[in-house]
Nucleic acid binder design. Structure first.
Length: 105
DNA sequence: AATTTGACCATAA
DNA sequence: GTTATGGCCAAAT
């Protein structure tokens, strides 16, 4: 048993409830890859565009912001998806993790 | 086989 | 508030 780490990551991401967000580091920890936050970003980047069972938009960085992509404009898509779920951003495009952060061990 | 790269994080100054 | 550094893992070159 050692399904690809990507699959474990996606599995964890699927558990994030609607209207909540989690950080890359948090996902890595829950997936048993503590410390390997970068891998989470990489795994999400590798998701097919038509994938809809994984709520990738609920994963943000530790600063409560949407991580910059290579492609400009992608951030806006994510922001829109989150707004549609009821997640609010403050004036500096940051999310209050104390309020919207996913609490789970 | 070795090196580079990436949607990151915590810590230090 | 900022910038720099080291650590972590898998996929692509």
């Amino acid at each position: 048993m050692n399904p690809s780490s990507y699959r474990r990551i996606w599995k964890v991401v699927r558990r994030i409830p609607k209207g909540r967000v989690a950080t890359y580091g948090q996902i890595a920890r829950l997936a048993g890859l503590g410390g390997a936050a970068r891998l989470v970003g990489y795994a999400l980047h590798a998701l097919p565009d038509d994938e809809r069972t994984v709520p990738w938009q609920r994963v943000i960085n530790a600063q409560g912001r949407i991580s910059p992509r290579g492609f400009p404009g992608a951030e806006e898509v994510q922001r829109r998806l989150l707004l549609r779920e009821g997640v609010r951003f403050d004036r500096r495009a940051r999310i209050d993790l104390a309020r919207y952060g996913w609490k789970e061990r």
